[in-house]
């Protein structure tokens, strides 16, 4: 009874809350880092060093007026933010934060579940996320959101191909689709997959930037051209949901990249006996540290690079990343056959 229902429920509650807190503080982190990159201080007023800024933002967004345009498709308009938020959250069902640990005399695995098709689950849930954007653009019944949503969905579908192909080469290396087993394969193979699959790693990271609509590929919400993109007509809490969904997607991308390429919960050089003293640090801390590094790089890239033009984006996706990913896949297969 306890193993079947109570512990999974507890895990879901903890992970969901942790994610939402992490998402709101990701916003603060982004504002702070970009401010430092531009020699500013960033939010300083609410709490010491602006530490309570996310709470203030949340309160502000909740008490704002919630507007539905007159000619909007009401049901779809309401559903779109929810549809974009849900996939970002349910991906966490398969992401492992650590190995099995014993808590209060029980063996508890630090992942909500470990399914046979974990990686495919991540890809398929991510592919459903595009609906939120398309429907928001359609339901607003306004031209800028529609343009933005068409751009966004074309962008997401194009980059999905490249990202999925890189994941296939990871699966070839690991020989499994289960997220826990992929981390185990990195332990047994004595090396993080980022080092044996550097091309896949880079392509995955660039693809993740595009999949999450982050700068330099934030075409769908390019303020200067589209007055804010697909959520132009949204306000109040529904706008906040889109905002949260974007950051939740960034955190998902970081977690997936950590699991697949940086060894998940493994400490650096997990097979080197000399570093065994690092064992006092709990495994999930390594996961969080690695994910944090990814989040920082996401923000760093945004602060550094200018936005791509739309045709440049498409050229990069179809003419550079996809051929690179396919070539990498072919080479991985050949090497794997030769070595076995």
């Amino acid at each position: 009874m306890i193993d079947q229902f109570v512990i999974p429920l507890l895990k879901i509650v903890i992970v969901l809350n942790a994610t939402l807190v992490a998402v709101s503080y990701m916003v603060l982190l982004e504002r702070k880092v970009i401010a430092w990159a531009q020699s500013r201080l960033g939010p300083m007023r609410v709490g010491p060093y602006g530490i309570l800024q996310p709470v203030a933002d949340a309160v502000k967004l909740m008490i704002k007026e919630d507007i539905t345009p007159v000619r909007a498709d009401r049901w779809v308009f309401t559903a779109a933010p929810i549809i974009s938020m849900v996939p970002a959250l349910i991906v966490y069902a398969v992401i492992p934060f650590g190995p099995k640990v014993s808590l209060f005399g029980r063996q508890v695995s630090l992942s909500i579940t470990d399914v046979n098709v974990g990686l495919l689950y991540v890809v398929s849930v991510a592919s459903v996320g595009v609906y939120g954007i398309i429907l928001a653009g359609y339901a607003s019944n306004s031209k800028y959101p529609l343009l933005a949503s068409l751009r966004a969905s074309a962008q997401l579908i194009s980059y999905e191909v490249a990202v999925t192909l890189t994941l296939v080469s990871v699966v070839l290396m690991a020989g499994t689709l289960s997220m826990v087993s992929i981390v185990d394969a990195q332990y047994n193979g004595r090396v993080w997959f980022a080092f044996v699959q550097p091309v896949a790693f880079v392509v995955f990271f660039i693809g993740a930037l595009a999949e999450t609509n982050r700068a330099p590929f934030d075409m769908p919400e390019a303020e200067q051209e589209l007055t804010g993109g697909f959520h132009t007509e949204y306000s109040g809490m529904r706008f906040a949901l889109f905002f949260l969904a974007e950051y939740a997607n960034v955190i998902v991308a970081s977690s997936v990249a950590t699991t697949l390429f940086l060894g998940g919960w493994l400490r650096p050089f997990p097979n080197v006996a000399m570093l065994r003293f690092l064992g006092f640090i709990p495994s999930w801390t390594w996961f969080l540290i690695k994910s944090f590094v990814f989040l920082y790089i996401f923000i760093w890239v945004r602060a550094t690079l200018p936005r791509y033009r739309y045709d440049q984006l498409m050229r990069l996706g179809w003419k550079v990343l996809i051929p690179l990913a396919i070539a990498n896949l072919v080479v991985t297969g050949i090497v794997k056959v030769l070595l076995s």
């Binding site: 046979n116 495919l120 689950y121 592919s127 459903v128 579908i157």
Partner: peptide
């Protein structure tokens, strides 16, 4: 489960888009 995931990936994520 494999077919279920493929169903979501191909149908929901591809064809219906």
């Amino acid at each position: 489960p494999f077919l279920a995931v493929i169903q979501v990936l191909v149908y929901a994520g591809g064809i219906v888009v």
